[in-house]
Design a protein around this nucleic acid. Structure first.
Lengths: 345, 345
DNA sequence: GTGAAAGCGCTAACAG
DNA sequence: CTGTTAGCGCTTTCAC
């Protein structure tokens, strides 16, 4: 592979000049510039990104921490991030923590600041302390789906109003006339579904509808299946089920089918987030969509800004700076086929 | 961030020595080694990967080219690759071509050899010429799912016997007693489903069963849906449908449902590859699984070997070297609930 | 406008 | 065993 100096030699100039024309830095005469460009063409020169990274003190890559692939939401989000990163000139290294905080830490230890100049975090089951450490070391970190805009975390983030999402789901069910509703809430441990559930509960309370039965479940189809069965067995009169996520909602639909219940005639089902699967299930799942692509874009933009400013002011005024937060636009109800008016029974 | 020389100074040795203990290169006295290790600890030193990449002339990253996310198979495979790469000490940069060869080329232009020392290619709709170019430039390329072991492509690859997969699907249907079978074959353009279909046809022919009706379809649920409807309308007596991929198979199940057909009582459906979706559809899809994880591992291993040898023999004997190919173990039938004996009608 | 020179952080011979 | 000496390929002041 040809190097910068080879190009320089070929063009009869010095490496500095070549570098200048390539990056539109400094002033270069029109004819010299052309000569350099020709040489680049002739030799098929391509800048060595690792070398450039070293010289510039910054690598053109971002690390994206994801927890697993079991939930199709993450790959979908990952691709959205890749697109956003690409338009900002970054490459993305995909770091699968596989739900293991240690694995996540190992990734951060290795590449944060040494191979990637920023870190994006999806719900990756990471140790927050590790994230603070990498931030303290000078590598910006952005959380991608912070669930409660009202309570900023200690790290920069893109917030999504998941409380509102839960509320919208609740309102939809109420409007349809449901009064006896069950709820499937994602695993308590991660606490990530708390806001969604809160919003849902608020909607019911405001409407004066009795609180729903709740069942916690793993964020999987199976988890939702089991939870829905339990819910329906303990209260066969339920006319609707709200799930804080799509996979459990899908599981609930399966459970309904196995119990001989028709969705939505006998049982309405609604979820949150809008993955491809939701569009393609039978019946298609009604859900509250969160603006995934927008979140990815906001996150990448925010990360870039943090990166930029971290190069500017070397840890200046760190203590006083407020932790930045961007809020994505509001979730939106997507009505499909899994919800309808309750059949009187 | 502390540097190697800072560690060296702290430990009262030279950078070279630190480097040696860190990489277990050269001989270092036990006490010196300990002193260095202590300094590393004390300073919280972490090697700068970009700098190392430049010095070594090789980056610890692999590029994974994928075409899209519409088909959940790719993300699933991508994660398998990440796992395999990780155990071989590599990071993976995810390159989404988005079905656009130009986008793929841009990726290759930029990072092949300059930021990543190897390229893994899934069915990414790339221009083969671009791949050959990057290979000629000295960056090894490995194709991840070559479909016909009998006809090596011009590039190193991991082959999967998709012909056999099609055959297994056909045999399964035949064994169940089906004689009137429809086939949904993935888009002709990519030609990627040809082998699967061949195997299927061979199975029928060998059994003396009349050739099936064929319908081409996009590799999506919708595509399969439309194809299945067309198939069933043109021949309502079909008792089974074979699809060369999972998404169309799922679509066929939906079509059956809409036509009032019960799967598998009225219509059996079988697909190829085994994505998560297949396990969770209702009824669960019978399919022929290909060893995804194994393919990922073989691909990474092969790529590593190519990388290693490319550093050894600087383009030596390039012309004569045979293009290496690894073959993954045979596809296997996974019987689930979407296939059964044909109901006599 | 262009060149000279220093250096990013690390590795890799080769000396001692 | 450890230190010296060169770079890897590129960027970036700062002179000229």
């Amino acid at each position: 592979m040809p190097t910068l100096s080879e190009v320089a030699r070929h063009a009869g100039v010095t490496p500095a000049t070549v570098s200048n024309v390539l990056r539109n830095r400094g002033r270069v005469g029109a004819t010299t510039r052309q000569r350099v460009l020709d040489a680049v063409q002739a030799l098929g020169y391509r800048p060595h990104l690792a070398a450039r990274a070293l010289a510039e003190g910054r690598a053109p890559t971002l690390a994206l921490m994801v927890s697993s692939i079991a939930n199709p939401f993450y790959p979908e989000f990952a691709l959205a991030v890749e697109r956003a990163a690409r338009t900002s000139g970054h490459f993305v290294i995909i770091c699968n923590t596989n739900e293991d905080p240690l694995s996540g830490r190992a990734y951060l230890e290795q590449i944060a600041g040494t191979l990637s100049e920023g870190v994006l975090v999806t719900n990756a089951n990471l140790d927050f302390a590790d994230l603070h450490t990498t931030e303290a070391r000078g590598t910006p970190v952005v959380l991608c789906m912070w669930e409660r805009p009202a309570e900023p975390p200690g790290l920069p983030c893109v917030a999504v109003d998941f409380r509102r999402a839960g509320e919208l789901a609740g309102l939809h069910l109420l409007e349809l006339g449901h009064r006896r509703i069950g709820a499937i809430v994602g695993s308590k441990a991660s606490g990530i579904h708390a806001a969604r559930y809160e919003g849902f509960v608020d909607a019911l309370r405001t409407a004066g509808v009795p609180k729903a039965r709740v069942k916690h479940a793993a964020d999987t189809i199976q988890g939702g299946y089991a939870a829905a069965r339990a819910l329906l067995e303990s209260d066969p009169k339920l006319t609707a089920i709200f799930a804080t996520n799509n996979l459990p909602a899908l599981g609930a639909m399966h459970a309904a089918a196995d119990l001989g219940l028709n969705v939505p005639a006998d049982l309405s089902v609604i979820g949150i987030t809008d993955i491809q699967l939701a569009r393609e299930s039978r019946p298609a799942l009604t859900t509250v969509a969160v603006p995934t692509v927008e979140v990815a874009e906001l996150a990448v933009t925010l990360l870039r800004e943090l990166i930029e400013s971290s190069y500017g002011q070397q840890a200046a005024g760190r203590g006083t700076a407020r932790v930045p937060m961007r809020t994505a636009s509001s979730p939106e109800l997507v009505v499909r086929a899994s919800t309808g008016a309750p059949r009187s029974r």
